[in-house]
Amino acid sequence: MKITGITVVIPTHPFRVRNGMLARAVKSVEQQHLTPDDLIIEIDKEGLGAATTRQRGLEKVSTEWVAFLDSDDWMYPEHLKVLAAGARAHKADYLFSYYMVHRRDGTPWPENDPLGHFGKPWNPAAPHQTTITTLVRTDIAQAVGFIDPPEGSTVGGHRGGEDWHFTIGCRDAGAHIVHIPRRTWAWVHHGLNSSGLPDRGDAAIR
Rank of each mutant, 00 (worst) to 15 (best):
K60Q: 15
V61R: 01
S62T: 14
S62L: 09
T63Q: 12
V66T: 14
A67R: 01
F68A: 03
L69A: 05
D70W: 03
S71E: 12
S71M: 03
D72M: 02
D72P: 02
D73C: 07
D73H: 05
D73S: 07
D73P: 00
M75G: 03
M75K: 02
Y76S: 08
P77N: 10
L80W: 04
K81W: 11
L83V: 06
L83S: 07
A84E: 04
A84P: 00
A85P: 00
A85K: 13
G86Q: 06
G86I: 13
A87W: 06
R88W: 03
R88C: 08
A89F: 06
D93I: 06
Y94T: 02
L95S: 08
L95A: 07
L95P: 08
F96I: 10
S97K: 02
Y98D: 14
M100C: 01
M100N: 00
H102Q: 04
H102N: 05
R103L: 04
P108T: 04
P108I: 01
D113Q: 04
P114G: 11
L115V: 14
G116H: 10
H117G: 08
H117Q: 11
H117I: 13
F118K: 07
K120Q: 14
K120C: 05
P121S: 08
P121W: 10
N123A: 06
P124R: 08
P124H: 07
A125H: 14
A125F: 09
A126L: 12
H128C: 12
Q129S: 14
T130W: 11
T130N: 11
T131A: 13
T133P: 00
L135F: 11
L135H: 11
R137S: 12
R137F: 09
T138P: 00
D139P: 01
A141W: 04
